[in-house]
Design a protein around this nucleic acid. Structure first.
Lengths: 337, 337
DNA sequence: CTGTTAGCGCTTTCAA
DNA sequence: TTGAAAGCGCTAACAG
């Protein structure tokens, strides 16, 4: 494979001149540029970014560390990240942690070794070690989707508390008083915030503690099934379920139907996260939709501004609003209320 | 940031010895290893893979170039790729081309510059130039999801023709004779193969050309809407629609319902690609499901075997079977038949 | 506007 | 089992 020297020889210039043409930095006459460009074309020269990175100490790699790209919510985030990064000449590495702190830390290590320019991190747990490790090694991080108490880092998330508040208020407005929360893992800020929103809405309505039911599990369909099972076996049975994410909602729906109950006639169901329009066969679930693409975009913009070096301001926190989308699963006002 | 020299000095050995400890290549006494390892820990040394790659001329980066990660089919492939690559110490870069050849070529260029070890490519069009460019630059490629006539490259796909055959036979068995194919772009092998399967099934049943209706568009929901519109405005109206992918199916379903028709009572609908279980609120669409995760896994295994150098066999072609999943949208046997 | 020199941090090659 | 020397391909720093 030809190197910058081969190009230089062919064009009758010094290697550094070729470098200047490629990187578009520094002056260079139109004629020289043309000579160099044709030499590049003739040789089929492909600049070696590995060498360039070693010398310049900067790579054009960003990393997106998330829990599971299989969840459309994260897929949309990923797309927002990639589109934005790509527009600025960055390439994105992505890593699925499956909510495992061990996997997360293994990946962080690899990313540091590769000297990625910056990292977008959806933390596997409410742990600041990964963020600190990156920062100690001078790698800018933007934390995404989930807050991290104690970490001094940029943060982009959606308003989990507000979204939960809207959903639970909606249910209360429909006459529900026994509302079960099928939540994600405690310690994950999205789960904690949705729990807080749940309680706040119930407090507002003066619904007493003993009518509340909070169950914790993973953000998976299986967990949704299991949590719904627990909720249904409770006496008295809740009249509405609030699922803390899309997978839990679907698992819960599945279980409720298998148990012979109809949604929303027998029990109402609302959840977090919407599915992209192109994936919904029948619009059914009432949800608080998070602006996932926008979150990925904003987070990447923030990261890029940190990379460019002209943004030394203190850590910023961007909270985007959720959107309440009312469909059938939340049902009609309860007759009995 | 400390370098290998700092570690060497601290451990009282030569840099090359540190290198041997890190890469686990070459002999090294247990005692030396221990000294080096503690020096690494004390300094918080993170090996620089950029330098390592430059010297050794090998990176641990793979690239996955696909059309749109937003499609769960590709998301599942991506997950299969990442899990497999990650097990072998590789990190994955991913790139969305949005079916644009220009974007694809732009990405290939960037990947070559980064000297990625290998590429998994879902071609944006039936064009071999990207594959050739990679191969000319000694970068192994495995083509995924879509065939590329004329390219001498490994290929992993699912049996589009067989899947189409099964779906159309199913419809014919239910009594349908006017079946419209809402297809993807001509020139993309998946679309061409599904078309071939469509015709083969109709040929078997002796259904004449004039009863066939083939419409081409993009693999998007909007396109599905539009193609369904065209199909419905045809006289006589088809009694069944065969959508060539999941997005087209949903767009078509949307349009059919908006037009006041019921699926499957008024018109049957079948499609390609299933959605992951965790995303389906109501199982409804009859589909030929492709083993997406498995495809990503197999393609990556093939690529890795090429990278390891001990697999110099001629290009291989792996075709995985699709699975027919019969649900409601295909309907009951037609009374009139 | 263009060139010379040196060196980024690592591993290959050869030697002990 | 360990080390010395050299160089991967590029660009920072400085010079003209």
């Amino acid at each position: 494979m030809p190197t910058i020297h081969d190009v230089a020889r062919r064009a009758g210039v010094a290697p550094i001149t070729v470098s200047r043409v490629i990187t578009r930095r520094g002056y260079c006459s139109a004629q020289t540029r043309r000579k160099v460009e044709s030499a590049i074309a003739e040789l089929g020269y492909v600049p070696n970014r590995v060498a360039s990175s070693l010398r310049s100490k900067r790579t054009s790699l960003l990393a997106l560390v998330l829990t599971d790209i299989t969840n459309p919510y994260f897929t949309q985030i990923a797309r927002g990240v990639e589109d934005t990064a790509s527009d600025s000449g960055y390439t994105v590495i992505y890593c699925n942690t499956d909510e495992s702190l061990l996997e997360e830390q293994r990946y962080i290590q690899v990313l540091l070794q590769n000297r990625v320019a910056g990292v977008l991190l959806v933390p596997a747990a409410g742990e600041t070690r990964s963020v600190e490790l990156l920062q100690n090694n001078h790698t800018p991080v933007v934390v995404l989707d989930r807050g991290l108490t104690g970490a001094r880092a940029d943060l982009v998330l959606s308003d989990s508390l507000g979204g939960a508040l809207q959903l639970v208020r909606l249910l209360i407005g429909l006459g529900h008083r026994r509302i079960a929360l099928l939540n994600g893992p405690p310690g994950i800020s999205t789960a904690d915030d949705r729990l807080a929103g749940y309680h706040q809405a119930l407090d507002e309505a003066g619904i007493p503690q003993e009518m509340r039911l909070v169950l914790h599990g993973g953000y998976t369909q299986e967990s949704g099934c299991e949590l719904a099972r627990q909720a249904l076996s409770h006496h008295p049975r809740p009249s509405a379920l609030f699922a803390a994410n899309n997978f839990i909602a679907i698992g819960a729906l599945r279980h409720v139907q298998d148990a012979g109950l109809r949604v929303p006639a027998d029990i109402a169901l609302v959840g977090f996260d919407d599915l992209p329009d192109a994936l919904i066969t029948f619009p059914f679930l009432t949800v608080a939709s998070q602006p996932a693409y926008e979150m990925g975009k904003r987070a990447t913009e923030l990261l890029l501004s940190r990379l460019s070096g002209d943004d030394e301001s203190p850590p910023r926190q961007i909270v985007l609003p959720t959107e309440l989308i009312i469909r059938q699963s939340s049902g009609q006002p309860l007759a009995s209320s």
